[in-house]
Design a protein around this nucleic acid. Structure first.
Ligand SMILES: [Mn+2]
Ligand SMILES: [Mn+2]
Ligand SMILES: [Zn+2]
Ligand SMILES: [Zn+2]
Lengths: 126, 126
DNA sequence: TTTATTATTGCAACATAGTTGCAATAAATT
DNA sequence: AATTTATTGCAACTATGTTGCAATAATAAA
């Protein structure tokens, strides 16, 4: 179930994403908003924003949960099957717009695929 | 640091992988070997077997750690950058031999990529 | 505007996966 | 057989995330 009431918590979390073109980990958000919001609230609001197609989530190499803005998703349809990139030096994570082709595999029905690419980002590869 | 002494624990864990063509999660191993080995030992031995290029590890959709046999890896070189497949019905996970091409991305140095494909396996898609 | 309804929040306690320190044990070497 | 030290088991811990429940606040109704 998604958002029903426009609350302070939701405003605060949306602002975090408005001011960032990158993905943000749930942990980072709980720390960053520690004075303002309880960590349970952070997790619950993120969950609702995802339900509503406002954010999407994925796990990084260590199994940590990250969130990023969706582009044209709704609460009924999510279109965020894109790969993600994590910089091994600065740790920044972002969404990639490239499309990676997954070939058919004999005798298997492919539903989804998660792709996490690692390397050095623009700033870190100089 | 890898294996130095050939112990009972190592034999037991190697046997588990000898009898399975699939990947096995660390959790599953701790449960399966609960009577024989302490969970700390299981985690430590898996870690060493990975160091030695005998096993390789990866995380599934939920961030759970899985291990599978390596093919031609050594303690100096790991060649296990292949994609993995997890059946959404029976939960089985295995290594795929297909090669998925990751295109170059402007201004970024790609090091590795993790690909987890989900769908129904041979048995489950009938 | 006031009152009523109920979604949302904060808190504490819990769950799960994996890790660490340390004394006891058991491989390997002498 | 004695010595060395890698490995193990245990308990306690860490980290990330979840749950139950009473208090609070957003919205609807009066
Ligand atoms: Mn994304
Ligand atoms: Mn594999
Ligand atoms: Zn970077
Ligand atoms: Zn299956």
């Amino acid at each position: 179930m998604g958002i029903i009431r426009k609350t302070r918590s939701i405003e605060i979390l949306l602002t975090e994403f408005k001011n960032s073109g990158y993905a943000i980990s749930a942990i980072e958000l709980t720390k960053r908003l520690d004075e303002k919001l309880n960590k349970t609230t952070v997790y619950r609001v993120l969950d609702k924003l995802e339900d509503d197609g406002i954010l999407h989530s994925f796990l990084d190499k260590k199994g940590i949960k990250w969130y990023a803005k969706c582009n044209n998703c709704t609460h009924t349809k999510h279109f965020d099957a894109h790969p993600h990139f994590q910089c091994i030096r600065c740790g920044k994570v972002d969404c990639l717009t490239i499309d990676i082709h997954i070939p058919k595999i004999p005798n298997r029905e492919i539903t989804v695929s998660q792709i996490l690419i690692q390397g050095k980002c623009e700033s870190c590869s100089i």
